[in-house]
């Protein structure tokens, strides 16, 4: 497995992915979110089509309540993952609304809970 991880800042992410993403070569897999040491880590994962196990991951770190850029205009599926992370991790993506998975009066950001 070949995974390349690239750290970008929240301002750069849009330009970086716009320059990099060609849907015919790279398949957009998903947006992944982690919450560690009071910091959000958002990963945009891509896998190369037709090549064995080659991954490209852009990741950015942000404080827990930062406003994150939405990439739904480049990759329409991103809207789904942004909504999901908004619900489960309380990652505040632009234009995302709560309520896709958890009711509005439900648990706040369950995935921030640690053992």
């Amino acid at each position: 497995m070949k995974t390349t991880k690239e750290l970008v800042t929240l301002h750069e992410i849009r330009g970086a992915i716009e320059g990099f993403y060609d849907p015919q070569i790279w398949h957009f897999v998903c947006i992944n979110g982690l919450f560690e040491n009071d910091e959000l880590e958002i990963q945009w994962c891509f896998a190369k089509i037709g090549v064995k196990d080659e991954w490209k991951v852009f990741y950015a770190k942000a404080p827990g309540d930062a406003l994150l850029p939405s990439l739904a205009d480049i990759m329409p599926t991103a809207r789904m993952y942004e909504g999901e992370l908004r619900d489960l991790l309380d990652a505040n993506f632009e234009n995302s609304v709560k309520g896709m998975f958890i009711e509005l009066d439900g648990l706040e950001a369950p995935l921030r809970i640690k053992r």
């Binding site: 849907p23 398949h27 896998a47 089509i49 037709g50 090549v51 064995k52 990759m75 599926t77």
Partner: peptide, 21 residues
Amino acid sequence: RSSLLGPIARASGVNFDVRND
């Protein structure tokens, strides 16, 4: 454009199958 996957993508002529990748 909408990063489709599985049989749906393959029915539209996109040769994307994780079994290959």
